[in-house]
Design a protein around this nucleic acid. Structure first.
Length: 917
RNA sequence: GCCCGGAUGGUGAAAUUGGUAAACACAGCGGACUUAAAAUCCGCCGGCGCAAGCCUUACGGGUUCAAGUCCCGUUCCGGGCACCA
C-alpha cells in the first residue's frame, strides 16, 4: 500500500468500485428489512453549498450505518427543478430556464458524485420533466373530481409597471424589486386545494408521528391552529343599491373571546367589505382610505407590524345582547380573506383593539377582572388579555369564568338565531396557482361556451414549452400561441389553455413516493412503493418544518383517499438538520435594490470597534496600520488595485486606526442560511479538491450537532485532514510492523491480557459503546470525536507480541467500521488493503464485548456540601455502606467538614458521593 | 407583531439527560527533529491568586444535597409567517 495518504486516488478507486459493483442499486426484497433514507432534494441553483453537504452527509451516514446493520437501504436523489431562480437567471442572462436548470443539474450531480454518497442514481428524477409533472396534473384532476380542488379568488402582489404578479420575495419595502413601483394588492382567480378539509386529521395524526421532533409537531399544531369560538352577527338595516339590507342585515364576526362580548365598543371591517364599499359611496375620505388599503403587502408579518389605521363609516349595527348601537370602522388590519372580513372590537381585552381605541379615542370598557388587579386606561397590561379572570360589568354574565361565560353567551346568541359555537382553524386553503412560466402547467382549458374544462387524462401531460425566456414582464406563455390555442375537449370549439402553473410545493409533496416507484412506470406510484414506503428517515432543514412537511402530509392523505396508497403519513422519522449560515453582504443600488455579494469575495476587518467589509475585486493587497496621534507608518504599505478606500476610526483610547482597502466597500447584512437569493452559499468544491471528500464529510459532521445551526467556517478543516492522514499512517504501520506478529492461531478470545492491554482494549470498546449510543441518538459529531479518541488510544497502545498485535487488529477493525459511514473512501481502502475483508460495506457493524468492558475498581467523585473536594477509588461492586464509610474517612471530608457532623450522605452509584454537613 | 429554536474558553464544541463544566478538535504559546521550511512528535492552554483557594455555562431571580441541564422573568441571535425553496 501507499505510505502517503492520497485522497484523490483513494476516492477515485472507491467510487469506481461502488459504480462497477452497483453497490447502491436496490430493489424491493420482502425477505429483508428495509430502510428508506431520504434527504430533501435540492433546488438546482447552480452549485452545491455547505448546507447541501451537511444534509446529504447526514443522510449518507445513516444509510451506510443501516446497510452495515443488515438493512436493505434505499437512498435516492433528485431535483426540485421548477422555481423562481431559473426565471431570474433568464431575465439576467437571456438563457431559457430549462437549459439553465438542466445545466445546473448536470454540474451539481457531478459535485454530489465526488462526495461519494451511497445513492441509487437509477432512481434520479427532476420535477421539471413531463414524466414527473404529468402526475401532478393527473392527481390535480382527481382532486377536482372529488371537490378537493376548487377555483376561487386569491390576493396577490401586483406590480403596476411590469403588469405582473410578484412573489413575496420580490417585494422589497412595499415596492417591486425590478421597477421600484409601489405594489398593489389585486384579486385574481386561482385554484385552491382544500387542505382545511383535512385539518382535523393533520392535527390528530401528529400524535402518531413519534419519530418527529416535538418542536416540529408543535409548530405544525400551532399553524393548523384549532380554536373553538363563536360566530355571531350584529344586525342592521343598512340597505344596499338594490334597496335590500346588505348581507341580509347581518354583520358576521368570529371571536375566540365571546366572554368579552359585553365590552364591544366598535366593529372593524376590511376595506373590501360590502359595508365599507357602501359607506364609501358618499364619503370621499373613506373612498380614498379604502384605495390606500389596497397598497401594501399581503404578508402576515407586515400586517402584524404595520401601523393600525382606520376610519369610521358612519354606519351603526346593533349589539345582539345589549341592543346598543355600535359604530362600524374600516381597518387596514382586517383582511377580507379571513373569516367574514370583520371583527368585533373589545379594546379593554385585546391588545390590538386597545391600541386602536387609544389612537382614535374610542371608549374602552373593562368586562373581565383578574383578582384585585386595578384596570387602568393608561397603558396595556399583560393580564388584560388573560382568560383566567371572571366577567364584570356584563349584566347577567357577571362572575362567570371564561368557559362558563362563552357557553352562556353562545347559548343566548343561538336562541336568537344569530350565533353559534364554531371550530375555527388558522390553517387556510392552499392556493396553488402561480402566474409564472417555469412550473407545472395547470391542466385546464378555458372555453367561451363550456367554461373551465379539465384536460382529459389521455391528453396528459400538458407539456410546458422549454424554449421560453421570461423577461420579467409577466408570463411568457401568454405569447406562446402554439401552447395557448387548443380546441375545447367538450365542444371542440377554439379555446384557450390555462397559463398559470403550479406552486413548486406541489412538486415536492410526493417525490418521495415516485422514487420508490419502478423507473419509468406509467402510473403515479406502483406496487414497489408498498415495500419502500413509508420513509423511515427523512432529513432536511428546520426551515421546512411547516409548509413543505404539512403539504406532503396532506398530499399523502389525498393519494390515500384516491386509492393510490395505503399509508396515511409519509415520514416516520424526521431529523431536522440545523441550517448552515453564512454572513451576507450587499451593495445598495439605486432605487433601494440590493446586489448580494458572495462571502468568499469579501474581506472583513474591525476598525475602532466597527466592522467593515469590502470586495477584493483585484485580489490584491490591503494594509492595516495604527496611526498614533496622526503619525503613521503608511510608507510600508504597498497597494496596487484599481480602487482604494481609506477608512479611519478612533478607538476608545483615542488612537486612530486606518485601513486602506483595495476594492469596493460593501454593506454587512445578517448571518443567514445559505441561499441562492442572498448569494451567501459556500461551494464545497475547493475543499474537496484540496483535502478530499472524506475530510470534507468528516469535518462537517464533526463540527456541530446535526440539529444545531452552524455558522460556516472552514477553520479546523486541517484538523480533520490531519486525523485522516494519521489513520492512514497507522494503517501503514499495522501492515508493516504489527500484523506480522500475529501467530497462525488467534488467541485473543479467552486470553488473560496484561494490564495495559486490558485497559487499552476496554477504552476502545467503551468508545464503541458510546459511539453506538450516539448513533442511536443521531448525534454524529460525538461519533466523530470517538473515532479520534480511538486513534489516540491505538497510537499509544502496546504493539509488541502476538497478543498486542491481535488486540490492535481487533481495535483498528472497530475504528475502520465506525469511521466508514463518515469517511467511506479511506475506510474502504484500508479495510481491503489490510486484509480485513473484500468490502467494508458488507462487514457487520461492531458491537462492544461485555468481556472487554468489565472493570474491578471505579472512581467516585467526593463532594462536601455540593463542592468537589476529592476522589475515591472503590471496588466496582462495593456496597453503599462501605462507600459511605470510605467517604467519611477521607481526608478531604474531614478537612472541609471542619469538625461538623455529616447530616446526610448522598451516594450516586458509579458517580459520586456528596456529604452534607 | 405572532409561533419555534439557540446562547458554554480566543474558536467549533462535549457533558452518560439533575451528579467531575470545558471531552475531542482548531488557533495560539513553548520545546524536539531539520542547514532551513513544511510535515511530524512532546508539553502548556477559562479567569483571578505566590499559594491554600475563589470565581465561571448570555443576564436577573428561584427549586434542589447537587443546576449548563428544571421553573419564572429579561436581552441578543437564527428560522417560519402561507408566491424563496
Amino acid at each position: 500500500m501507499q505510505d502517503k495518504y492520497l485522497p484523490a486516488d483513494i476516492e477515485r478507486a472507491a467510487q469506481q468500485h461502488w459504480d462497477s459493483t452497483e453497490a447502491f442499486r436496490v430493489h424491493a426484497d420482502a425477505a429483508r428489512p428495509k430502510y428508506y433514507c431520504l434527504s430533501m432534494f435540492p433546488y438546482p441553483s447552480g452549485k452545491l453549498h455547505m448546507g447541501h453537504v451537511r444534509n446529504y452527509t447526514i443522510g449518507d451516514v445513516l444509510s451506510r450505518f443501516h446497510k452495515m446493520k443488515g438493512f436493505n437501504v434505499l437512498q435516492p436523489m433528485g431535483w426540485d427543478a421548477f422555481g423562481l431562480p431559473a426565471e431570474n437567471a433568464a431575465i439576467q442572462n437571456g438563457v431559457p430556464p430549462a437549459k439553465w436548470t438542466y445545466d445546473n443539474i448536470a454540474y451539481m450531480k457531478q459535485q454530489l458524485k465526488s462526495l461519494g454518497f451511497a445513492i441509487d442514481w437509477r432512481r434520479e428524477l427532476a420535477t421539471c420533466t413531463p414524466e414527473y409533472y404529468k402526475w401532478n396534473q393527473w392527481l390535480f384532476l382527481r382532486m377536482l373530481e372529488k371537490g378537493v380542488a376548487e377555483r376561487k379568488t386569491q390576493v396577490v402582489n401586483w406590480d403596476p409597471v411590469d403588469q405582473t404578479v410578484l412573489a413575496n420575495e420580490q417585494v422589497i419595502d412595499g415596492r417591486g424589486w425590478r421597477t421600484g413601483a409601489v405594489v398593489e394588492k389585486r384579486e385574481i382567480p386561482g385554484y385552491y386545494l382544500k387542505i382545511t378539509d383535512y385539518a382535523d386529521e393533520l392535527l390528530g395524526d401528529l400524535d402518531e408521528l413519534t419519530g418527529w421532533p416535538e418542536r416540529v409537531k408543535l409548530m405544525q399544531a400551532n399553524w393548523i391552529g384549532k380554536s373553538t369560538g363563536v360566530r355571531f352577527a350584529f344586525q342592521h338595516d343598512i340597505a344596499g343599491d338594490d334597496g335590500q339590507p346588505i348581507n341580509d342585515g347581518k354583520l358576521w364576526v368570529f371571536t375566540t373571546r365571546a366572554d368579552t362580548i359585553m365590552g364591544v365598543t366598535f366593529c372593524a371591517v376590511a376595506a373590501e367589505h360590502p359595508l365599507a364599499l357602501h359607506a364609501a359611496k358618499g364619503n370621499a375620505e373613506l373612498a380614498a382610505f379604502i384605495e390606500k388599503c389596497k397598497h401594501g403587502s399581503v404578508m402576515e408579518a407586515d400586517m402584524a407590524t404595520m401601523e393600525k389605521e382606520g376610519l369610521p363609516t358612519g354606519l351603526f349595527v346593533t349589539h345582539p345582547l345589549t341592543g346598543k348601537q355600535v359604530e362600524v370602522w374600516v381597518g387596514n388590519y382586517v383582511l377580507m380573506s379571513y373569516g367574514d372580513g370583520a371583527v368585533m372590537g373589545v379594546p379593554a381585552h385585546d391588545e390590538r383593539d386597545f391600541a386602536f381605541a387609544k389612537k382614535y379615542d374610542l371608549p374602552i370598557e373593562q368586562v373581565v377582572a383578574l383578582g384585585d388587579k386595578a384596570y387602568s386606561l393608561d397603558a396595556w397590561q399583560e393580564w388584560y388579555g388573560s382568560k383566567d379572570g371572571v366577567c364584570v360589568n356584563s349584566g347577567k354574565y357577571d362572575g362567570l369564568n371564561y368557559t362558563d361565560a362563552v357557553d352562556a353567551i353562545a347559548a343566548d346568541l343561538a336562541a336568537q338565531g344569530i350565533g353559534e359555537k364554531k371550530v375555527q382553524w388558522r390553517l387556510r386553503d392552499w392556493g396553488i396557482s402561480r402566474q409564472r412560466y417555469w412550473g407545472c402547467p395547470i391542466p385546464i382549458i378555458h372555453c367561451d361556451s363550456c367554461g373551465s374544462v379539465p384536460v382529459p387524462d389521455d391528453q396528459l401531460p400538458v407539456v410546458l414549452p422549454e424554449d421560453c425566456v421570461p423577461d420579467g414582464s409577466g408570463n411568457p406563455l401568454h405569447k406562446r400561441l402554439d401552447f395557448l390555442h387548443v380546441d375545447c375537449p367538450k365542444c371542440g370549439k377554439p379555446a384557450r389553455r390555462e397559463t398559470d402553473t403550479m406552486d413548486t410545493f406541489v412538486d415536492s409533496s410526493w417525490y418521495y413516493a415516485r422514487y420508490a416507484t419502478r423507473f419509468g412506470a406509467d402510473k403515479m406510484v406502483d406496487e414497489e412503493t408498498d415495500y419502500w414506503m413509508t420513509v423511515d428517515q427523512y432529513i432536511g432543514g428546520i426551515e421546512h418544518a411547516i409548509l413543505h412537511l404539512l403539504y406532503s402530509r396532506f398530499w399523502t392523505k389525498v393519494m390515500r383517499d384516491v386509492g393510490l396508497v395505503t399509508y396515511r403519513e409519509p415520514f416516520a422519522h424526521l431529523l431536522t438538520q440545523g441550517m448552515v449560515l453564512a454572513p451576507t453582504y450587499f451593495r445598495e443600488l439605486e432605487g433601494g435594490k440590493k446586489e448580494w455579494v458572495n462571502p468568499s469575495n469579501v474581506t472583513e476587518s474591525v476598525i475602532g470597534g466597527k466592522r467593515y467589509a469590502w470586495v477584493q475585486n483585484d485580489g490584491l493587497n490591503f494594509g492595516e496600520t495604527n496611526l498614533v496621534e496622526g503619525r503613521g507608518n503608511q510608507s510600508k504599505i504597498r497597494i496596487s488595485a484599481s480602487k482604494l478606500d481609506v477608512i479611519r476610526d478612533d478607538d476608545e483610547h483615542g488612537k486612530q486606526s486606518v485601513v486602506i482597502v483595495a476594492g469596493d466597500r460593501v454593506q454587512i447584512g445578517g448571518v443567514e442560511k445559505m441561499s441562492k437569493s442572498k448569494n451567501n452559499g459556500v461551494d464545497p468544491e475547493a475543499l474537496v479538491k484540496q483535502f478530499g471528500a472524506d475530510t470534507c464529510r468528516f469535518f462537517i459532521i464533526f463540527t456541530a450537532h446535526p440539529e444545531q445551526s452552524l455558522e460556516w467556517s472552514d477553520a479546523g478543516v486541517e484538523g480533520a485532514y490531519r486525523f485522516l492522514r494519521r489513520v492512514w499512517s497507522f494503517g501503514h504501520l499495522f501492515a508493516s510492523e504489527i500484523r506480522g506478529q500475529i501467530g497462525a492461531q488467534r488467541q485473543l478470545a479467552g486470553a488473560k491480557l496484561p494490564e495495559d492491554l486490558t485497559a487499552f482494549r476496554r477504552e476502545i470498546h467503551l468508545l464503541l459503546k458510546q459511539a453506538n449510543y450516539d448513533l442511536g441518538k443521531q448525534q454524529f459529531n460525538t461519533v466523530a470525536s470517538a473515532t479520534m479518541k480511538m486513534l489516540n488510544a491505538l497510537e499509544k497502545a502496546p504493539r509488541q507480541g502476538a497478543l498486542a498485535a491481535e488486540t490492535i487488529e481487533e481495535c483498528f477493525g472497530i475504528l475502520l467500521r465506525v469511521l466508514s459511514p463518515l469517511t467511506p473512501h479511506i475506510s474502504h481502502a484500508l479495510w481491503l488493503d489490510l486484509g480485513y475483508g473484500e468490502d467494508i460495506l458488507k462487514a457487520a457493524w461492531p458491537e462492544p464485548l461485555d468481556a472487554a468492558l468489565v472493570q474491578d475498581e471505579v472512581e467516585l467523585m467526593l463532594q462536601v456540601n455540593g463542592k468537589l473536594r476529592g476522589a475515591l477509588r472503590v471496588p466496582a461492586d462495593a456496597a453503599k455502606d462501605a462507600i459511605e464509610a470510605a467517604a467519611l474517612a477521607h481526608e478531604a471530608t474531614i478537612k472541609f467538614l471542619e469538625g461538623r457532623a455529616a447530616k446526610k450522605v448522598v451516594v450516586v452509584p458509579g458517580r459520586l458521593v456528596n456529604i452534607v454537613g
